[in-house]
Write a protein that binds this DNA or RNA. Structure first.
Lengths: 168, 168
DNA sequence: TTGGAATGTCAACAAAGCTGACGTATTGTG
DNA sequence: CACAATACGTCAGCTTTGTTGACATTCCAA
């Protein structure tokens, strides 16, 4: 039966075979490890972890964001985020200011110190990303982004698109 | 200066801007969460974790693999892997047999029970992958794979390619 | 003024990684 | 043969990062 189907499929559907899907799964696993390796090395020296990196990244990306908003972007519990945020505030990397309109909210910003670490981390991560982009070329990059977007949950895609194409 | 460079770049290098690279970084973050979400839900019910999934996946993929080989694929310490492997063996999902040629080695196989869980997990993960592939199309999938491969560490790429295009 | 939303904090716990040390087979080598 | 190296397992202890649940505070809005 499998032999009978194969020739009918044509090559247009060959990328949907179990084997191709499994290779995609493995590619995600191995690539994600590379993706986090460089920042992880920097973070380990400063006794921070990936959770700190994520908080710093998205605070940089959305300056003045509230704790609740950051919570829904990161998809963790407030207790988990709070622990990370507390150390970043204590260490002077993040500033937390009471909201003007709604004083319950805290608005988060990177301090100059925090911005420096953000730059160090994202430089390292972008170096690898740049090398991968350059090696693969623009067409591959477009496909890469398309597949990743299609892989996201609706909520994640919403956050992702909300941050799309911001001016630097 | 930035304004001066922009027109000279041409659109062929537009995918290497900081903004594009940052979007790639965020796409990886959000997509990876989606990528693991479905198996995670199944695993949580059975009180297993992602580490168990990874072990099961690669034992399925390379039946009879040794502990050492699995170790280098997964990139964790033997203590960490051992904890996971022990529960899988105790629960009857994985069989460990003494090597014939080298009796120090243990060869790992999935039992029928282990194979059933593997199928359940990979079905869930492949469903999402298939949907993403279908939505993005064959050309995008090729680019996706290219970029991910370029993002891997050399050692990871080696493992990845060693498992390439196995017959099912 | 009272209910609910946003925030913060305490405690307890689990998954999954790490280091270091040690024991036991087994194998390869001088 | 003797000894070093390899493969594996295990004990103990620690870290990061996630989870629940409970509870207090502050503040907005009906």
């Amino acid at each position: 039966m499998a032999e009978g189907l194969q020739p009918q499929m044509g090559q247009s559907l060959l990328f949907l075979t179990d084997e191709q899907l499994r290779k995609g799964i493995e590619a995600m696993f191995f690539a994600y490890r590379g993706f986090t390796a460089d920042p992880d090395r920097i973070l380990a020296q400063k006794s921070y972890g990936r959770a700190h990196h994520r908080a710093i990244h998205f605070i940089h990306r959305s300056p003045g964001t509230t704790v609740n908003n950051l919570l829904s972007i990161l998809g963790v519990t407030k207790q988990s985020l709070n622990r990370v945020l507390r150390t970043l505030i204590e260490d002077g990397l993040v500033a937390s200011t009471v909201g003007k309109k709604d004083k319950r909210e805290r608005h988060l910003h990177l301090t100059p110190l925090g911005a420096a670490l953000e730059r160090e981390l994202s430089d390292a991560q972008r170096d690898r990303m740049r090398a991968a982009y350059r090696a693969a070329g623009p067409a591959a990059v477009a496909g890469f982004r398309q597949v990743l977007e299609a892989m996201m949950d609706d909520e994640a895609r919403h956050h992702y698109e909300a941050m799309k194409d911001r001016p630097e």
